[in-house]
Computed example of a mutant assay.
Amino acid sequence: MRAIRALAVVLGLALIGGCAHAGATPSAFPGEVPAVRTAPAAAAPPEQPAQVPAAPPTTTPAPATTATTAATTAAPVTTAPRTAPPRTAVVAGLAAGTPCKATVAACVQLSTKKAWLVRDGKAVYGPVPITSGRPGWRTPPGTFAVTFKNINHKSSLFNNAPMPYSVFFNGGIAFHQGSLSVQSHGCIHLSKAAAQTFFSSLSKGSVVQVVA
C-alpha cells in the first residue's frame, strides 16, 4: 500500500512538470485558481464639464403701457337759458311798416289812402288801397275800438245802400266793401278781398287808429 502511494506521488509530480508549457500560468499551489490577467484599463479621458443645455432666451414682456390721459376737468359753463320772446310781445313805438302805434289792430292813413292790419307790433296785411270821406263828410283821425260787425249791412241814412262786410269803429263809420274811385260819406272803402279780410280779422274791441 505504501508502495502504491509512493508511486502515485511520483507520477503526480511528473504530470505537473510536463504540463507547464509556454503561455500557461501555473498556480503557486495545487488547486489554486490561476490569476486572470486583465488588460490594463485605458486611461480615462479628462473629465469634461457637464454640458448644461442653454436655457431658451427669456423674453420679458414689456410692461403694458397704460395711456393715462389726464382728464381735463373744465369748469362747467353756465349759460342762461334762451327764452324766446312771447309771440304777443309788442314792440314799443310804431308798428313796423305802418304810421300807427304797435298796439293797434288796424291802421288807416288818409293822406296816402292806405290801410293795414297789425299783429304783435307789425303789419301782417297791407298796405291795401282805400277811399275815405269826401268834403263835408271827412273821416276824422283818432284811435277807436270796433263796436260791431254786420256782413250784409245796408245804410239807413243813404237809401239802404249796401255796405257788405261792415266793421263799425266810430259811430256810423265803418270799413266795408265800396268804390275805390268814389269817396265815401266818412266810411273806409275797401276792395271786396280786403273787406273780407278786415271783417274776418277784426272783432269787437279791436283797436283802430286813423292818422292824417
Score class of each variant (00 low, 15 high):
M1F: 12
R2H: 00
I4L: 15
L7C: 07
L7G: 08
V9K: 11
V10S: 10
L13S: 15
A14I: 10
A14W: 01
L15P: 02
G18W: 10
A28Q: 09
F29S: 09
G31P: 08
G31M: 11
E32Q: 14
V33T: 13
A42G: 09
A50G: 02
V52D: 04
V52F: 04
P56K: 14
T59E: 14
T60L: 08
P63H: 04
A64R: 13
A74C: 11
V77H: 09
V77G: 14
T78Q: 14
T79M: 10
A80D: 08
P81M: 07
P81C: 09
P85H: 01
P86S: 13
R87M: 01
A89Q: 13
V90H: 00
A92M: 03
A96W: 03
K113M: 11
L117K: 00
G121T: 03
Y125V: 03
G126S: 06
P127S: 12
P129M: 11
S132G: 03
R138V: 05
T139W: 06
P140G: 11
P140Q: 12
P140E: 06
P140K: 05
P141I: 04
F144V: 12
F148K: 07
S155E: 07
N159D: 10
N159M: 08
N160D: 01
P162F: 12
M163I: 10
F168P: 02
G172V: 09
A174G: 02
F175T: 04
Q177G: 00
Q177W: 05
S179R: 03
G186T: 12
A194L: 01
F199Q: 01
S201V: 03
L202N: 01
K204C: 00
G205R: 09
Q209A: 13
V211H: 02
V211I: 08
A212N: 15
